[in-house]
Structures are given as C-alpha cells and as structure tokens.
Design a protein around this nucleic acid. Structure first.
Lengths: 308, 308
DNA sequence: ATTGCCGTTGCGCATTGCGCGCCGGTCGGC
DNA sequence: GCCGACCGGCGCGCAATGCGCAACGGCAAT
C-alpha cells in the first residue's frame, strides 16, 4: 500500500474518529482503511490507535505520528502544488536560444509583449548564430532557421518561413548593372555571410527545370553578422543574398532592390525546437503558440518582398 | 508505485546522476527506477530530468522538486525513527493503574529503580482500588489483584501471587481467644474491607475436603483502605483477613499472629493487565518483565507468612 | 432480546508490481 | 574507424498486492 496514501487514511481516521467515516469520506471500503492503518502499525511496530468497539483514541506515539503525518502531507501537497502549477501556468526561468540577426529584428518587441502576460516568468534569451546543443546547454527552446531540421531527436515546430532574397542598392545596380542570371554573380561584388561555413556558395533554382544552381560567389567583404552586410549593401558595396526578414525593410523603403527574383531558391523554415520530453512545460508551450500566432505563413517580411 | 519509494528513487537518480547506478544502489532493476521517475513525471505533468543518452540534468522544476523531496524524505525517516524507537527503547509517558495498598507497600521503591534505567521515560502512577476500564481511561498498564481475570479481552500476565492471611494481634487473641475454625469468627470482631462489595464474606477452605467455607463476618469497623484496617488489627481492635503483602511485616515483627492457617483459601494472583494490541510498546513490555522478575512465585510477603 | 453500527478478516478477482531481455544510441579503447 | 560496453526505455510474463464484498464478533441503544 502506498505509504502516503496510508498516512492520509490514518489522518482521516483520526480526524473523523472512525474508520467507517474515514472510508466514506475517502470513497473506499472500510477494509482498505483498516488495512492501511494496520500496515502502518506493522511497519512502525507500534500501536497508533487504541480501538474500543465504540470509540477510538490515539496512543502517545499515535499522536506524535499524527502530528508529523499532517506536516508531511502538507509538505507533499504543497510540493505537488508548486510543481504542478508550472505545467498549467508559465513560471520560472525560460531559457531561449535564438539566431542573432533574426531576433534583433523580429523578436524583441513580441517577446516583451509575451513576457508582460506572465509576471511569474523570467526570460533568458541567448542570441547566437551557432547551432547550440539545446539539451546539453540547458535551453528550454531554440529558434532555428534552416531549410531542414536534421536533429531528428528534437521536436520542431514550424513558426513561419522566409527565403533568401538577393538584392543590391539602386546605386550599385546602376554602377555595375543588374545580373540577369545567377552565374553573372561571379563577376560581382558579393557580400558574404561566414556563419554558414567556409564554402561560400549561393543557392538558386532554375525557374524552368527546377534544378538547383550553386554559385561560388566572391567579394571583398565577409562578415558573420547579417546587419553589417546589410548596411554594406545599402551603402552600395555589393550584392547581398540574405534572408527576407533582413532585407524587408530596406526593400520596402527602396534602399535595396531585389534581383534574380525568378531564380529564387525555395523558402526555408523558421522553427521552434525543443527536447522531445513527454511533458512540455507550460512556458515552452505558450511561447511556441505565441510565436506561431505571431507570424504565420505570411509574415511581414515576406509581404514586403512580394510587393516588389 | 509507492510515492515515497518513487521519491527515494528519484533522489537517488539525481544524486547518482544515473538511472542504472541508482538501480544498482537500490538493488532493483533499472526498469523499476525508470518507471518510478516516469510515474512521478506523469503525475506532476512535468519533466523532472532532461535525459541525454550519456548524461542527465535536472530541469528547473526537477531541481525544486528534488530539494523538496529530500526535505520530505528526511522528515519521513525522522518520523519513523522517532516512532520506531518507542518500540525498542522505553520512552514517553507510561500510565499505570495499580491498587492502592499493594502499591504503597511494594511498588514504590522498585518503580523508582525501574525509572532510573530509562531516563526518557515518564511515569504516571494512578493508585485506585476501583477496577478501572484500562483502555477507556487511557492506561498503558494496570496491576490487578484477583483470584481470576474475568475481563477476557485484555492480556493478563501473572506477576506473582499472594493469599489472604487471617490474623490478629497477640493482645487480641489473649483477650478473646484464638478461633480454631472459621465459623468461630462469627463471634469475633472482624475488620472488614469494603472495596470487595457490599457482601462481606470471608473465604476459607476445608483442609480435608477442600470445600470452600464462606463466613459472613461482622464487626464494628469497615474501611475501604487496608492500611487503616491493619493499624486497627495491630492495635488489637479485631481480626483482619487481608492479603499477605499487607500483613507480612507485622507478622514478621510479631505484631500480628496468623490464625486458621490450615483453613487458608487458595492463593490469588497479582497480574499485569494491558490491552490486546498487536504491538506492545517497549515501555509496557519492559515494565511487565521488570515486575515479573521482581517477585516471582516466592515473593517476600509469602516468605514472611510461611515462616510463621 | 433485538437492532444497528463498529472494526476486522477471509475471499475472489483484477491490477499493478517486478525482473528479464532487447532495442537504439553514444562513448571510449584499440 | 570499428567494436564492445554501457546508457535509458520498453515490452513481456509471472507473481504479488490491490481492491470491494460479505461475514463475523462485539458493543450500545432501544
């Protein structure tokens, strides 16, 4: 018999001053209550209750045990309360890993709104363009931007999508001409992003055959930060192939002009990724839901790129 | 699965940082440990542990739960310690009911010795010649002096025996003559004890046939206290038929002389009586053992009466 | 004397308990 | 780079414990 259940039954018996009444209150047969108390007494090798047929009284050890049982049961229920509450209402610390550029542009204000909803929640947002080991480093959630989730033992939820937009400033295009085919990029100044690995190949797709086109571009500027490259592109330093969310505002304002639009590679996904735990905490679930509702399949950055 | 056992397993897993190690330490199969933790997580609807194949880490709620589990388990084991210790070593309050006269004469010093052995024990000795309801009034133990224990739902242990000794002072016998047969008591001043009920019959036994002889004695002094009657007898006020332990010292000193010795009724028992609990506490067990060893079947009062 | 309620106990049945063995996966040693 | 050891999880078969039901003895009130 479960020891805590036996304690609960014993406490009930004492407070009800009756085995039968306790059994009724607990919704079990009285034999269960009787056996529970007898089992406690056997384990403790002590008499807890003096049974007269007509009434019962606590022995001295029974009284001491009763007091402590009440304390223990209180503590247990308080503990379960605290722990269980975390599965209903977001609370505690939420550790999120997210890519740098995307988050700076799109995650700041929304997260602030999210946090306002849950006063008991703390957020630790770690911006990093590395692919972090989410469980090893103790993150609750990561936001990944990639064409395909390869880490199969993680749960990935698609939040939205984006695509790579190739563009340059009007001034640059005026000066160097607008390429009409990806291969022409070889003769252009391309602003390269170093985080994707040493091999700097830009991906396109043939609009007729659908075949991928890889172009090993070159250029004098390489950075591991999209914002820097974007600023360089706006300034007219070269052509940038960056995510739509990075270029959207500049395109909307006319500072950058999309090129090679018909050769655009398929869009990639923006995912929320978390460990495949059987019990997803409320804080993670709520944040994922929040992010899903935030952008959907027609996020603002895509809209901005479409209208061009 | 027992909730406390599951907590213990969880705590073990955390401290060992491994399910397998915890299982080995606890002497169970690892599937049990795995299921115990999984069951905890299911009940709490929360993830307690982040499992990587190679190592595991506590989640935030897991850490909080772990801390509280340790506290709860400490409290439980401390409680069991305290309660169980009472079944090994006498402690707490020992409530004893005992007859007045016998205890004043024979229980004082021995009980003092007994108490010296157990510093953690307290004694509440209630002297009373009533037949108390031992469980109703909350006594741990009662000492009963009677020919036969009739309260069958109590456990009775024979500690020793005594008998009724009929005697008078030499001066009384000189003045009124020594009766040679119980029936002659009808013509004597008999000092009567009122606690045995309204019918005042003294019991004897025919030494040849073994038949009981009942004599409805009379006399001008009735008391519910043996000491008073003994004092009266010593003073020469009449014949007393009292327990051997009451008269022993006076007989030894010659202040009282036994009479009608061959008509003496069979001895009666001195019993320790306690409720028929399945778990007899150490304090009761030890006191019973102590009292049994104290007198045995040849108590000092019997010796004193035999030599006469 | 009878009735009703008490706590306990035996019984039958269903549930859960356990250990065992296997699986996918990861890491260390050679 | 490959193999073996170990990890945690899971399904299986068997045994143990769980439960409710009903009967029992005891006691108090009627």
């Amino acid at each position: 018999m479960d020891r805590l259940t036996a304690m609960e039954m014993f406490v009930r018996v004492v407070s009800a001053k009756s085995f039968s009444a306790a059994a009724r209150q607990l919704g079990v047969s009285k034999s269960v209550v009787s056996k529970a108390v007898a089992e406690l007494e056997d384990r403790l090798r002590a008499q807890l209750l003096n049974r007269t047929t007509r009434q019962m009284s606590l022995t001295e050890v029974g009284q001491a045990y009763y007091d402590r049982c009440v304390a223990i049961l209180d503590q247990v229920s308080e503990t379960e309360q605290i722990v269980t509450s975390g599965s209903r209402c977001p609370r505690g610390l939420l550790r999120v890993s997210a890519p740098m550029t995307f988050s700076v542009l799109n995650l700041g204000w929304p997260l602030s709104d999210f946090m306002e909803q849950y006063p008991e929640l703390s957020l630790e947002l770690t911006l990093n363009d590395r692919v972090v080991d989410i469980v090893e480093e103790g993150f609750d959630l990561a936001i990944r931007i990639s064409r395909r989730l390869k880490d199969s033992n993680l749960i990935g939820v698609k939040l939205s999508s984006a695509r790579t937009v190739t563009c340059a400033s009007p001034k640059y295009l005026e000066q160097f001409g607008e390429p009409q085919h990806p291969r022409e990029l070889l003769k252009h100044h391309c602003l390269r992003y170093s985080n994707l690995g040493p091999a700097q190949e830009w991906s396109f797709r043939d609009p007729e055959t659908g075949d991928p086109i890889q172009v090993a571009v070159s250029g004098r500027i390489i950075a591991n930060n999209g914002e820097v490259l974007r600023a360089a592109a706006v300034k007219g330093d070269g052509i940038i192939a960056g995510p739509s969310f990075l270029a959207a505002e500049d395109i909307r304002q006319g500072r950058l002009v999309p090129i090679l639009k018909e050769y655009a590679a398929p869009p990639f996904g923006i995912y929320a990724v978390y460990p495949p735990n059987r019990h997803v905490s409320a804080k993670v679930r709520r944040l994922v839901d929040f992010l899903k509702g935030l952008w959907g399949e027609n996020p603002p950055w895509e809209e901005a790129c479409d209208v061009c």
